[in-house]
């Protein structure tokens, strides 16, 4: 094994065609997207791709040597599996470079019906150890897995050494602090969940209300946050909410920070990570263009000379300026965070 020699691929988000083009133009190696239905974990109002848009996007990306992955990463129900299977069929037919799957029933379907289509394991499968990865590789032929944001970089290094499955990790954007795919907080409060409905804190349940100059955020009537005047706001997700425990009020689960692993890039290269994933399919093309440009510059700089690499101040402030809470963290990649 020769870790650190191969330049990892920048995997960029696109919630619509303009964002996909922005990602490709800004130097994204790969763009990931979902279809406009319940089959993907960003099933938000007005977001995602129709068949025609996906077709155009894939042609656009391929013409510029970029790849497109299609996320079909929620779990089908037992009444009608067709939104999920037809999404996989469509990804295959349109020439997607990989499908990103979480549910074993879908991995099995894709393996049987589209054996030539590359299968990646979604972060929603929450596979954070090599035994699980090797199982998915042996049974369903996965080539790559996206790590849940609960493992340290040291552990990722160990996992990489014991599996032939390529490792992809999140490096930038919204930080899910729970093991993805194993969090039901959203359905506990709103009735809709990432696994079943492709949404976390769905907009239909969110209400922003102003109360004595402060901004209150309610989720299906449950008060989940209160922002002082001028205080940076965060997404209305439960894990970034303010609650009370042990008589103290505050961010009981996680501060509203965004993930930013720019400063760890040489270690990430050395850990043998193949894919660097940027979160943000819900963001605009401006966000995608800015963030992908910064990461492109950083990855190229690190690949050219990992020893001399340093995260530049303007990269860090550029990412902070657009991020949730206006601040960043390296999350679970560093043990101290836990």
């Amino acid at each position: 094994m020769n870790p650190g020699r191969e330049k990892p691929e920048l995997v960029c988000p696109a919630g619509n065609l303009p964002a996909l083009k922005a990602a490709v133009d800004a130097g994204g190696d790969t763009v990931y997207l979902g279809f406009r239905n319940v089959s993907n974990a960003r099933n938000f109002e007005g977001l995602n791709f129709s068949r025609e848009e996906a077709k155009e996007g894939i042609l656009y990306a391929h013409a510029r040597d970029s790849r497109v992955f299609v996320a079909v990463n929620t779990s089908p129900n037992s009444h009608d599996i067709s939104p999920w299977t037809s999404s996989i069929d469509m990804a295959s037919e349109l020439g997607a470079d990989a499908v990103i799957l979480a549910d074993i029933a879908l991995l099995d379907y894709a393996k049987k019906h589209h054996p030539g289509l590359r299968r990646h394991l979604s972060v929603q499968a929450s596979a954070g150890n090599y035994e699980a990865l090797n199982f998915y590789a042996r049974e369903f032929g996965i080539k790559r897995a996206v790590m849940p944001r609960i493992v340290t970089l040291d552990t990722i290094c160990d996992i990489h050494a014991k599996t032939c499955v390529e490792i992809e990790i999140f490096v930038s954007g919204g930080l899910c602090v729970m093991a993805e795919g194993r969090c039901w907080l959203s359905s506990y409060v709103t009735g809709d969940s990432p696994n079943m409905n492709g949404v976390c804190s769905p907009a239909h349940a969110v209400r922003f209300e102003e109360e004595n100059d402060s901004l209150e955020v309610k989720l299906d009537g449950v008060l989940i946050n209160r922002f002082a005047p001028g205080e940076p706001a965060a997404y209305p997700t439960l894990c970034k909410g303010r609650f009370e425990a042990c008589g103290m009020q505050g961010h009981v689960m996680e501060d509203p920070y965004s993930l930013n692993a720019l400063e760890m890039l040489p270690d990430i290269f050395a850990a043998g990570v193949r894919g660097l994933k940027i979160e943000g399919r819900q963001r605009s093309k401006h966000y995608v263009r800015t963030v992908v440009s910064i990461w492109r510059a950083a990855v190229d700089a690190c690949a050219a000379d990992p020893d001399a690499y340093q995260a530049r101040a303007e990269w860090m402030t550029g990412l902070d300026a657009m991020s949730e809470g206006g601040a960043h963290t390296t999350g679970a990649y560093v043990d101290e965070w836990r």
Binding site: G15, N16, L17, P18, A19, F44, E45, G46, L47, P202, A203, H204, V206, R207, F208, E209, E210, L215, F227, G230, E231, P232, A233, A234, S284, K285, M322, S323, E324, G325, G326
Partner: peptide, 23 residues
Amino acid sequence: FCRRLLLTGDTSTGLLFKNILAN
């Protein structure tokens, strides 16, 4: 995030508007 923009009322309509506009 920087409190320059706020949606009140039916958030999903606001989100839909934002996403359609972006697309």
